[in-house]
Amino acid sequence: MTEVSVAKDTAPAADGLVVLKNVNKHFGALHVLQDIDLTIARGEVVVVIGPSGSGKSTLCRTINRLETIDSGDISIDGRPLPQEGKELARLRADVGMVFQSFNLFAHKTVLENVMLGQVKVRKADKKAAEEKARALLDRVGVGTQADKYPAQLSGGQQQRVAIARALAMDPKVMLFDEPTSALDPEMINEVLDVMQQLARDGMTMVVVTHEMGFARSAANRVVFMADGRIVEEAAPEQFFSNPRSDRAKDFLSKILHH
C-alpha cells in the first residue's frame, strides 16, 4: 500500500483510480469501517461481499462522500476527496452511483432523469443531452419507456434507468450499492446483464452485492468484508473455491447451501 501513496503524487493514472488508505468511520459506538485499505485500478471490477452490517454499503458510499469518514484518506484519480461544496460536486459528477432503491427523480420523466445531470451539471446542450439520453436508454433496454414517470416502471426497468442516468455523466468509476437487492427475482438478471456488459466494456466498477454469480463471472477481484474490516481479497475463482479465512468459509457455507 505504501507504493500507492508514492505513486499518487507522480503518476496517478498508473496505479489506483480509487484509493482508500487507512479509512475509519464510526456510527456512534459502532466502528463500521476499521482501517480500510483498498486500491481499485482503472478498468477493474471489484465486487464487495460480506454479511449484512459488515460495512460494505458504507464503504461504497464513502467513495463519493455520501458518507463522511472519521480518519484516513480517499482519493479518486489522484485527487483527494474535497470538503462539501462545489469542488466535491464536480468530483461526484465523475463518480456514478447506483442505489439499492433506484432513487430516480420521481417528478421527472425517464428521459428527463437521464438528461438532467448533463444539462444542469455538465452544461450540455439540450438537444445533445436528449440524443445521448435516448442512446443510453436504448443501450440499457428501456428506450421505449422514455416518456413515462419512474413510478410507472418495474423495479428492474427503474434500476436500468438509474444506471443510464449515472452513465450519462461519463463517469470514471461506477459504484453499485446492492443494485439488485430490492428487485423481484425475475428482474435481477436484466440488471445484472447490463452491469455485465458494462464490465466487459472496461468500466471501472465497485459493486456491493449478494449476487455470487455476478461476482464469479464479472469480477476481477472479490473483497470480503466482515465487522467493518476487509478480511480477504482474492480473485473470484480462488475466493469461491478456496477461501483462506474462516470467516469467509463460514459465510460461503451459509449462502451456498440453504
Binding site: A93, M97, N103, G117
Partner: peptide
C-alpha cells in the same frame, strides 16, 4: 432522502 442523495451523486450542488 434518496432523492437528494441521487441528485448529489450526479454532481448537483446543494442549491441545485
Amino acid at each position: 432522502l434518496g432523492q437528494a442523495e441521487a441528485a448529489r451523486s450526479i454532481g448537483m450542488t446543494f442549491f441545485q
